Amino acid sequence: MFTDMKEALEAEALELTPVSTGQAAAASTVIARRARDKDDLAELLDALELPCGEDDLVRLLPHLPTTDTPTTGAPMPDKAFTAVAASMLNNGDTPEHVRSTLGLSESELAEAVQHAGLPAAPDTDDDATTPEEAVPAPNDPASADGIEALLTWAENHSAASIRNRAARVRSDLSELTERHATDAAQREAEERVAKAKAELESAQAQLREVKTGRRATTPLSPTAAPASVSTGRRSKEELAAIRTWARANGYQVADRGTPAKAVLDAYDAARSAANLTLAG
């Protein structure tokens, strides 16, 4: 306490040195050792303008003194690590992750789950399990109904972090569903393209055989019979079409008259192959 006004004014004018991160952490630890519970710790840190976020509180909880009858806030368990585990569970971490991270025993994990207000883990005694019990129940988180029920529970949870996590999971599930449908449609389209490609290659092979002068080996359908078979004679228009086709496919034909038998046979085979392709 200053007794001289001049000294007090001089002290007030001194420039304050900013508190470093290490100093703030040390001060927070000292305060945690004197706080009554989590709420009291948060209020003290806030009053002293020290970091008081959820992560800061979780880090400082092990330093809280254990009390049998806390005066404010949620009741504290006997072990500080159990308080940390309960806080992690309330933040949405899985029990297995909490147990492996903090190195808790099964009894300590059960105590943390109970303190966090979560449903107790089911008994996993293998000797008591029957084939009927091995079938997933509707409330089993591994089943579809269990996943939906778990998401509904998380979406209505009082903790914002759990609600946010449920929203992210819901969004990821929707994205995966759309991706699955897209992949299925793509596979179906690829199968159709492969089938069409095989049919096209087969038709092209038949056409190459016709161009080289070989008869198609595939039996002709009744609807694919050439005009010469059904009528015995070819019209002028058909002969003109045959000459045009023959020149386009490398045959030498006269401008008038009936082309040679080899040309007629090749033309008839080409028509038969085209009809078979359309029929397929």
Rank of each mutant, 00 (worst) to 15 (best):
T3F: 08
M5Q: 04
E7G: 00
L14C: 00
Q23D: 15
R36P: 01
D37R: 03
K38L: 14
A47S: 10
L50N: 02
H63M: 10
T66M: 12
T69G: 07
P70G: 03
D78M: 06
A80K: 08
T82W: 00
T82G: 02
A86D: 01
A86Q: 01
S87R: 13
L102N: 05
L104Y: 08
E106G: 07
S107F: 05
E108P: 02
A110T: 14
H115I: 04
P122N: 00
T124R: 09
D126R: 15
D126Y: 12
D127Q: 09
A128D: 12
E132C: 04
A137I: 05
P138M: 01
N139S: 15
A144Y: 12
D145N: 13
E148K: 14
L151F: 01
W153D: 11
A154S: 04
H157P: 01
I162C: 04
S174Q: 11
E178Q: 12
H180L: 09
H180K: 13
A181T: 09
A181Y: 10
A185D: 13
Q186I: 11
E190D: 15
E191P: 07
V193T: 11
A196P: 01
Q204K: 13
K211S: 06
T217Y: 03
S221C: 07
P222Y: 05
T223M: 08
A224C: 11
S228V: 09
G232D: 07
K236D: 11
T244P: 14
N249H: 15
G250L: 07
V253K: 02
A254W: 04
K261R: 07
K261L: 10
A266F: 00
A269V: 03
S272L: 02
A273C: 09
A274M: 05
